[in-house]
Write a protein that binds this DNA or RNA. Structure first.
Lengths: 121, 121
DNA sequence: CACTAACGTAAGTAATGGCTAACCTAGAAA
DNA sequence: TTTCTAGGTTAGCCATTACTTACGTTAGTG
């Protein structure tokens, strides 16, 4: 999955992640995005190109503007990846997973769920 | 969610992603990982530090060795993030989502699901 | 037509970050 | 204790890359 690698590389940059998160709320034009960021518009264009090459967003021409929106296939690929990682580790996670889903559990965590008393950092 | 940013930054590097993917199959020691990669062991150590700071892996001391394993909380955070992005865009995705879940649908895609005939790149 | 708005692209620069080499530390075995 | 094994840490080099400025392009408007 070379595409996964590109997706993570794309989201790896803080500015690009910020751009993606903004688009994730609703479609945005390039100018709109640049207006809310401390970088120039061309910089945003370059970031959008990377996000697009990674399959995370797509653009729609609207007159002279260009509206970018989230691309469902890209999100699905990432969703599936983490689901897969999760399930592959399901047995090992078991205890921790319970702890998470219990959310705000009683403050006394008995035995803390790690095996053989080895210290986990 | 500054932690999300660190997680994506961590997985953004190809070598680090390879390391993470290896750990995701089963826990590995540092030497094991370095043995399968074209980089030195110190480099692997540095990458593991980044992955650990991002909350994606944890390490367990085993004698003089150090075994790294996936950290469930980190995976959960990422899973939840993409679930959230997906659901927030659910309405917009609708058509595309159907198309994906149908997988290998009939080769004739009628109307291709885009609105108003604007070209999507 | 000319003018403007909204973008993308190219080139050049500056800074981030990944890598190796050398060194240091902590256990286990002799 | 000495020796060996397995890893973490630091310093510095070098390649990547994110950014800005300047220019080119396309579509709408007068």
């Amino acid at each position: 999955m070379a595409n996964l690698e590109k997706a993570f590389e794309a989201l790896g940059d803080p500015t690009r992640l910020a751009i993606f998160q903004r688009i994730a709320t609703r479609p945005h034009s390039v100018g709109e995005i640049a207006g809310h960021l401390p970088v120039s518009r061309p910089a945003v264009s370059q970031h959008l190109r990377v996000l697009k090459d990674a399959g995370l967003v797509s653009d729609v021409k609207d007159g002279t503007r260009r509206v970018y929106e989230v691309r469902p296939e890209g999100i699905e690929a990432l969703r599936r990846y983490f689901d897969q990682v999760w399930e592959r580790n399901l047995k090992a996670f078991q205890a921790a997973a319970d702890k998470i889903s219990r959310e705000k559990g009683s403050s006394d965590d008995r035995s803390s769920g790690n095996k053989a008393g080895k210290k986990v950092h």
